[in-house]
């Protein structure tokens, strides 16, 4: 399901998005007039050197940050005009996050970590348990539900984080260098898992990565340079 098939209303759409930090002469332009549309079901890798604006783009896509100029439409909704709490609700219901550093709650079991987003949704305990167990099974962690992060390997921790991201059945999972802290074998497993979630469950995935090999799992690669999109296309041509 490569991005070649355009849809009337993309899931995610950046229109001339500019994000600046600071003021006056100290102004830094992290994003400079970026246009990007991602359709439901896509698996997109975002690449680019440090400072190219890819992290800023991810923060905006995740509704953690808002554009200084331009518009970000998530499911057709202009995110820039929403309040902080409304954006929290968007994240709660439609977006899952996977981070480089896993970002699990310490001294909290895998199960409880995965339940966390459901708690904020107000799901009753029974439903929460069932959904969390299901998500953990999906990422291959049966039998480790009661382990705490410190008792799990890096790969397993990232699987817990992915389970936490998908437990709410979000429209999109945003993964910020999900394999950055893992060795190659573990990285491949995680990528297989993400690719499978994309293929089997139709979850849209947007992933930032430094590694060409990991980007190759995505159907589409967007390269950032100096706050602009340098190239955007299917895996093979972008790799050139």
């Amino acid at each position: 399901m490569a991005g070649a098939a355009p849809q009337p209303s993309p899931l995610i759409e950046l229109r001339q998005v500019t994000r600046t930090y600071g003021r006056g002469s100290a102004e830094v332009r992290a994003l400079d007039g970026v246009d990007l549309a991602i359709a439901a079901g896509e698996f997109v890798a975002i690449m680019g050197p440090s400072g190219s604006g890819k992290s800023t783009a991810m923060n905006i896509l995740g509704c953690l940050d808002t554009p200084s100029r331009g518009a970000y439409l998530f499911k057709g909704v202009e995110v820039g005009s929403l309040t902080r709490d409304q954006r929290a609700l968007l994240r709660r219901h439609f977006i899952g996050f996977v981070f480089q550093g896993f970002n699990l709650l310490a001294r909290t079991s895998a199960l409880e970590n995965v339940e966390l987003p459901l708690i904020y949704r107000g799901a009753p305990l029974g439903e929460r348990r069932a959904l969390a167990l299901e998500a953990l099974a999906k990422v291959g962690l049966q039998g480790r539900e009661l382990h705490q992060p410190s008792e799990l390997s890096g790969g397993q921790q990232q699987r817990v984080a992915i389970a936490r991201a998908i437990v709410t059945r979000p429209d999109v999972v945003l993964a910020d260098e999900p394999t950055g802290n893992l060795d190659t074998a573990r990285s491949r497993e995680i990528m297989e898992l993400l690719a499978e979630l994309n293929r089997r469950d139709g979850i849209t995935i947007v992933m930032v990565t430094h590694e060409q090999e990991m980007a190759a799992y995505a159907g589409r690669i967007v390269r950032f340079l100096d706050g602009r999109i340098e190239s955007d296309g299917p895996e093979k041509e972008a790799a050139q």
Binding site: A88, L89, R91, R92, G96, L116, Y120, R121, R164
Partner: peptide, 11 residues
């Protein structure tokens, strides 16, 4: 930060 990212509101 994690709680806020996964959708906890301010209150």
């Amino acid at each position: 930060g994690i709680r806020l990212a996964i959708g906890a509101q301010e209150r």
